[in-house]
């Protein structure tokens, strides 16, 4: 049965009073974040000391209030949760770990795609390019994105549930090897890469800009938690539905066999 059908059949079953509250808080947080990012914060403008001309990122900086929080979740938090849950699956071999890993990676893949998209839109006016093949952070993030998509594709290839979960867990763990490379790339290739170094770790940010960025990180973490929670519950219903279908089929075959035996007698 497709995920969409299961969702339709169990509409409302993936939410709970607490998850609804989290959803509402996330929605409120997103609206507030957009107001701060696009209206209340100033554009990045300063005067050049010798020419007196205005320099900076201007309004393009506003995109960073979305891009940076997504860049923390998509390429770091989500694959890390996926990898930890995958290790949990390989040790415990229970469905809970497998469904958790799947949920985290599926949501993470969406965030990772959005990070590449928003980064590209920001890069055009600021860097003067949509994409830079030689930039190590861009490339390692793209490779991670492709690996997350590979994980999702693999989950549909393997025929039996356990084999599928085992293979996927290995892919999730392998993908996580990329995480420290993505994180350290701007330090290791500092003068050989286009991507700027971390602003937060050097605290080269202050006042409302800093507040808005922090708010963005909190709001996007809430959004990630809410999405993973729902995807987990849907995945769990999917597994249960599959098991139920198998049990129903066995029951039907047994009934058929009983009728046949009675007929023979």
């Amino acid at each position: 049965m497709s995920t969409r059908k299961i969702f339709k059949r169990n509409q409302g079953a993936t939410s709970s009073p607490k998850s609804r509250l989290l959803g509402l808080a996330t929605l409120f947080g997103l609206v507030t974040l957009f107001v701060f990012a696009f209206f209340l914060t100033d554009p990045d403008v300063r005067l050049h000391p010798t020419t007196g001309e205005e320099i900076g990122q201007f309004d393009a900086v506003r995109l960073l209030y979305l891009h940076v929080p997504m860049a923390i979740i998509g390429p770091y938090v989500a694959p890390l949760v996926g990898a930890v849950a995958s290790v949990g699956y390989l040790i415990k071999r229970t469905q809970w770990w497998d469904v958790t890993a799947h949920a985290a990676i599926e949501v993470g893949a969406i965030f990772c795609g959005l990070v590449l998209l928003t980064g590209s839109i920001w890069g055009r006016p600021v860097w003067n390019t949509w994409w830079e093949w030689g930039d190590v952070r861009l490339m390692t993030t793209l490779i991670l994105f492709l690996m997350l998509l590979g994980y999702l594709a693999l989950r549909r290839v393997a025929p039996d549930g356990q084999k599928q979960a085992r293979r996927s867990a290995i892919v999730a763990i392998v993908a996580a090897i990329n995480l420290p490379i993505i994180n350290r790339s701007v330090e290791w290739w500092e003068s050989r890469t286009l991507h700027q170094k971390s602003t937060l770790s050097e605290l080269k940010i202050e006042d409302l800009t800093f507040f808005t960025l922090m708010m963005g990180i909190v709001v996007f973490l809430m959004l990630f938690t809410w999405l993973v929670l729902h995807r987990f519950r849907l995945g769990w219903l999917e597994k249960e539905s599959l098991e139920q279908d198998v049990l129903t089929s066995i029951e039907e075959r047994r009934s058929e066999a009983t009728v046949n035996e009675e007929g023979t007698l």
């Binding site: 300063r46 005067l47 000391p49 860097w127 003067n128 286009l194 700027q196 940010i205 202050e206 006042d207």
Partner: peptide, 21 residues
Amino acid sequence: HMVVKHDNDYRTDKDRVTDVA
């Protein structure tokens, strides 16, 4: 071919302006 290597400084103080120049 030209791309801008943007810095990671989002402060508004004078130190930043001096660094850039």
